[in-house]
Amino acid sequence: MNAQFDSIQVAESNSTADGLSKNLQESLHRAQQYAEENELDFTGSIPPTEAWSLVEQGYAVLVDVRTNEERKFVGYVPESIHVAWATGTSFNRNPRFLKELDSKVGKDKTILLLCRSGKRSALAATAAYSAGFAQVYNVLEGFEGDLNEQQQRNQQNGWRTHQLPWLQD
């Protein structure tokens, strides 16, 4: 995996000329360091605010891997693409996930995966990285964040607590 990281770092240094700001480049580098330190089997993990900066400036694609039901009843990020990692209320693994991700986004993009808490998106990132998606990142904290002491989400971290854009139909 280190050879993969080396090629990503070279791509990042070249991308500064293409307009990737130093701050965004540093965000990706920190995400990759996080992956190395935690022995992750994908490119890296990135905090929600940094993920949004990358999406907002057009340097990454945000892919929501939650179920249709979660998106409908809890909310979603308006600029996100939906490719469910699991489906239905029983969370059955989507056997078409990698094919759908490839057809909707492509393997050549920088992809940020978002789920409820950052756990399913990490599993999806591992599968995508193994399938040849070289620039796939997990969004830490997820959309709703971790459970607090009262077993409630949306209280201590997550996309929504950072006041990042989201909608609910």
Results as ranks from 00 to 15, higher is better:
F133K: 00
A51C: 03
M1C: 12
N154H: 05
W85E: 05
N14T: 12
T126I: 01
G158K: 04
E39P: 01
R96A: 13
A86N: 05
G118M: 04
E37Q: 15
R93Y: 10
E141Y: 13
K107N: 00
L140C: 03
Q32L: 06
S130M: 01
V63S: 08
E37T: 15
Y76S: 12
I8Y: 09
P48Y: 11
E50T: 12
V77D: 10
L28G: 08
N92Q: 08
R30A: 14
S7W: 04
L113W: 01
Q57S: 15
L20Q: 06
L62R: 08
A122D: 02
E39K: 15
E149Q: 03
E144V: 08
D18G: 11
S27L: 06
Q156G: 11
T126Y: 00
S27C: 04
S90Q: 14
E100L: 14
N148H: 08
V83R: 04
Y137M: 02
T67Y: 04
A124C: 03
H29T: 14
S7A: 11
S117W: 04
D64F: 13
V139R: 00
A86Y: 11
D146A: 12
L20T: 07
S27R: 01
E36Y: 13
A127V: 08
Q168V: 13
G88A: 07
A127E: 09
Q32D: 09
S53F: 00
D64T: 14
Q9D: 07
G142A: 04
Q155G: 01
S15E: 05
E56C: 04
